[in-house]
Amino acid sequence: MRQTVEKALTTVSGWFAIAGGAVLVAITAMTVVSITGRELNWLGLAPVPGDYELVEAGTAFAIFAFLPWCQMKRGHVTVDLFLARFGPRVNAAVDVVSNILMTAVAVLIAWRLWLGMLDKKAYHETTFILQFPLWWAYAAAMTGAVLFAVVCLYTIWRSLAETLQPPRQSPQHQES
């Protein structure tokens, strides 16, 4: 059962991470095109309109989309200095607590982002140049924030299971 959920969430988080990466590549390409247009402006070319705001909206989406994968892969930085000697079971128990807190924070972030999105929609706020509604960018970010909360919730379960039945090697922070 847990293996199925683990697998499914890993897959979905992976898709989000890939989507975020694709957006970063798009930002890169758009910036290069914009620079080219600006430099060759004597040829009648022009920079991409709204390039700055596209970078901002795109980066925000990418980072929100990366959070679930980071949580799934135990990517957050912790200081293992003192608790390392207590063995995997104690550490997994500590993980239960920190994952509960992480879930609370993730739910808080998603909830507040949702309200922020409703604000932007209600007040008709747009971006400067392209004037697309700002709540679109919030809505895109929202997808990542919701998945982050779901993944956090699952990691409570995962660390509970590891407390009862520790894995061979102690879980540790990783940076792949």
Binding site: G20, G21, A22, A65, C70, G75, H76, V77, S176
Partner: peptide, 19 residues
């Protein structure tokens, strides 16, 4: 190669920006 580089970027970007 592309997927792997996206996943690695995701892990380290998520870590840095959460901090």
């Amino acid at each position: 190669g592309l997927v792997d580089s996206f996943l690695s970027t995701a892990a380290s970007t998520g870590m840095i920006f959460f901090i």
